[in-house]
Write a protein that binds this DNA or RNA. Structure first.
Length: 776
DNA sequence: AAATCCGCGTTTTTT
DNA sequence: ACGCGGATTT
């Protein structure tokens, strides 16, 4: 779901961060022999017997039951290296599926660090499927390789339109809700509980089956796929065209799936198809860390696995190499409260370690400040920020944390939350590009047809839309029809003609390099006027975001070029798709979560869900309160399943959080917290009470004023500026202050730079230095 | 057609 | 507290 955040927060994050490190899932640029021989590293060094067994497993199904911190990734990477080196398997015949692009990148790096292999297929299900579809989709009627990928936002826009067209009350049946139904239906294929919903003779049942049909039709008409479709369409192709399935299944001699507990039914079916010829499938997972039930993750996959891949070898990894005993005991005690689980024990040779600290705070600001103070203390002990992480249940909690850390001058990075691609100007530009590549994309058409303003209002678009619907043609084609234009009154007519001419002029760009194409688009739409029109009181420097995207496209193009040089069909390494089309399909699948850069020395802030698979010496978990963790929705949700199962997932989420910590764990909760703009009193989470008293100590921080002030030292130095001051900025040069707004963290200045125009700058970040009036 | 105002729901979690 | 959508102006 598109999370919305206010502009201050959005501008606070460098968009560069959001883009960095997204290339990992591609082929490496340099050509290196793909089949190494020799190599002297002992692939079994330092492995325990269970780990060895998993690495050395020859053929047939393998199930690795891996507790947290049990060296699972190590086992997978060593196994891949072992298969290549000792069993002579071509790297490009190995497929490894990870949960995120970032995990894929890391896994690739780790294998390559052991062995100089090239051409491994390591990616998420979604990236893999996108890649397959680029080659195979035209076998499905109505689709071309120019297909667009709709993200959640696009999907909701489309659904809203369809609901309106069907005269449903959009306020009662929200697009997002309908979207969730459809998603459940697709992810479970034919076996979901929503099949019941459809049969039910209720308004909802009727609406659902109607929308399901209309939505599917609309996507096909638009030559578009949503996230789920990426998987579902590949599945369809595999089912209906066994030849295609076999070409992939025979290619991949070994298939591995990480985080198997979080796969859904389609993913399971895909795994089965991909392994259908060689039968060498290794899955790795931990039911206790299953936290994506809401996304269709299905425990039945584990049971089905044993049925479809008979008598798999099962390897249990129970030794933990990550956490101290205090942390492990807490984790174990918590997870044991789950009724619905197979018992599994964890042990570690690490010592007891420091006690877990539980902190009771007055409110969310106090909580955030406390975290900042603790981090400062840890830094004084020589702890580096990169070794520290702060987790929370819901994204909105990041705000308070962010501003406290900012004031305390603690460097931090946020993973997730608002994405770069959700910014308005980026969405607009990307929509233009999508429409260039895929003229059938009506969602993109609607978004940009009047951006910048061409005098086209709702009425004009409605007229056009009805015309298009009658003739079953796209909006682009309708806009080209003189008959349609004649029905449109007023200013809109010329505007639509203008837009059509503009887009037609850009048609050739779809095979051009991405950066060039984007620049042409920008020129055609008139960046100046477009951005000026959007100008509002927001502190967003939209121009630099646009520049950022172009720069990113440039590096994408370079990478594509490199991959062309390195491609070697004989070894199974292919060049990237490239061009504007490839660029769009790739950016659709990346997220901020993938951008985590380990080499920056910053504290990491993220949701508990994003934390899966990571580890940090020091971990803070904020908001350990009833209705937050467990979340209120989980508490009320009994959704026809076993009572308490939603709570059990919340508990697993907490378990995942705890087990990320290596040495120190801080758990925080507040007595009062602001919700929807109102203060509410809070109760400590039931999960806190499940931690054995001997491994946890609690206290209510009682800071003296001096200490509190210490956090904020120098924070308000910026207040020394005044309107009319001449200032100097490292990038924009000299300018004059036009306006000052806000205070403290929110303090911002509107500055006129002769060379760069007027900018609104957050004083926290912009290093503005005042220059004397007479020094010019 | 664009600008302004008011009221309402919002906050799980992500590819 | 916030943005969005709808209604109401201009």
């Amino acid at each position: 779901m598109a999370t919305k955040r206010n502009s201050e927060d959005a501008s606070a994050r460098s968009s560069g961060e959001a883009l960095r490190g997204l290339f990992g899932h591609h082929e490496p640029p340099s050509g290196v022999p793909s089949k190494p021989n020799g190599g002297s590293i002992d692939l079994l060094a330092g492995l325990n017997p269970a780990q060895r067994e998993a690495v050395l497993h020859e053929t047939g199904p393998l199930f690795i039951l891996a507790g947290p911190g049990s060296g699972k990734t190590r086992v997978i990477t060593r196994r891949i290296a072992w298969l290549c080196r000792e069993r002579g398997v071509d790297p490009w015949r190995i497929l490894a599926i990870t949960f995120t692009n970032k995990a894929a990148r890391e896994m690739r790096e780790r294998v390559e660090a052991i062995l100089p292999v090239r051409g491994l297929w390591i990616s998420t299900f979604h990236s893999l499927c996108a890649r397959i579809l680029r080659r195979e989709i035209e076998i499905l009627p109505g689709y071309t390789r120019d297909f667009t990928i709709y993200d959640t936002n696009d999907k909701n826009q489309l659904l809203k339109q369809l609901l309106k067209d069907s005269d449903y009350d959009v306020t009662r049946f929200k697009p997002a809700m309908v979207g969730a139904w459809i998603s459940d239906w697709k992810n479970g294929l034919d076996r979901t509980r929503d099949a019941d919903l459809e049969d039910a003779e209720s308004i909802e049942g009727e609406l659902f089956s109607k929308m399901k049909r209309r939505y599917t039709e609309a996507l096909r008409k638009h030559n578009a796929l949503d996230f789920d479709d990426l998987l579902v369409k590949v599945h369809e192709i595999f089912e209906e065209h066994p030849g295609v399935r076999d070409s992939y299944a025979s290619r991949f001699v070994h298939v591995m799936v990480d985080e198997y507990q979080d796969t859904n039914h389609v993913q399971y079916r895909l795994t089965k198809s991909l392994a259908s010829i060689h039968g060498n499938v290794a899955v790795c997972g931990d039911p206790d860390q299953s936290i994506y039930g809401w996304r269709g993750a299905d425990i039945r996959n584990i049971l089905d696995f044993e049925q479809d891949f008979p008598s798999p070898r099962v390897v249990k990894l129970e030794q933990n190499y990550r956490s101290t005993m205090a942390i492990l005991k807490a984790a174990q005690a918590v997870i044991e409260k789950n009724f619905d689980r197979k018992s599994k024990s964890l042990w570690s040779e690490k010592g007891e370690g420091r006690k877990i600290v539980s902190l009771t705070c007055a409110d969310e600001n106090d909580e955030a400040r406390e975290i900042a103070l603790q981090i400062q203390a840890l830094q004084r002990e020589g702890r580096s920020p990169r070794h520290i992480a702060v987790f929370y249940r819901v994204n909105f909690m990041q705000r308070a944390l962010e501003s406290a850390l900012r004031l305390a001058r603690v460097p931090y990075q946020i993973i997730g939350g608002q994405e770069f691609y959700e910014r308005r100007e980026i969405r607009d530009l990307v929509s233009y590009a999508k429409l260039v590549v895929n003229p059938a994309d009506d969602v993109a058409f609607r978004r940009v047809v009047n951006v910048p303003s061409r005098g086209i209002g709702d009425k004009s678009i409605e007229t056009l839309s009805e015309f298009a619907a009658d003739r079953r043609i796209t909006l682009r084609d309708a806009a080209r029809s003189t008959e349609a234009l004649s029905r449109i009154r007023g200013r809109g007519r010329a505007g639509i003609a203008e837009f059509t001419a503009l887009m037609d002029g850009l048609a050739d760009l779809k095979d051009q390099p991405a950066a060039f194409a984007l620049e042409q688009i920008l020129e055609a739409i008139g960046t100046e006027r477009w951005l000026a029109e959007m100008a509002d009181d927001k502190d967003v420097d939209r121009q630099s975001n646009v520049d950022e995207l172009v720069t990113f496209a440039e590096s994408y193009d370079q990478m594509v070029e490199a991959s062309r040089l390195a491609a070697d069909p004989a070894r199974g390494t292919e060049a990237l798709e490239g061009g504007l089309r490839g660029f769009l399909q790739d950016i659709a699948l990346v997220s901020d979560t993938d951008a985590l850069v380990d080499d920056t020395d910053k504290v990491t802030l993220m949701t508990l869900h994003s934390a899966k698979g990571l580890e940090f010496p020091v971990v803070f978990i904020a908001g350990l309160e009833e209705e937050l963790l467990p979340h209120a929705r989980a508490m009320q949700d009994m959704s026809g399943q076993r009572p308490g199962s939603a709570i059990e997932e919340e508990r697993r989420l907490f378990y995942v959080g705890i087990t990320r910590a290596e040495e120190r764990l801080f758990l925080l909760h507040a007595n009062q917290r602001m919700f929807f703009g109102e203060f509410g009193f809070r109760t400590p989470s039931r999960f806190l009470g499940e931690i054995p008293p001997d491994v946890i100590e609690g206290y209510e921080p009682d800071r003296d004023e001096e200490e509190m002030l210490g956090v904020y030292d120098k924070a308000d130095a910026v207040e020394a500026l005044a309107v009319g001051d001449r200032v100097s900025h490292e990038h924009f040069g000299r300018g004059t202050i036009d306006r000052l707004q806000g205070a403290g963290v929110n303090a911002r200045a509107t500055v006129r730079f002769p060379a760069h125009g007027t900018k609104v700058l957050l004083l926290q970040y912009a290093k503005l230095t005042r220059i004397a009036q007479d020094s010019r």
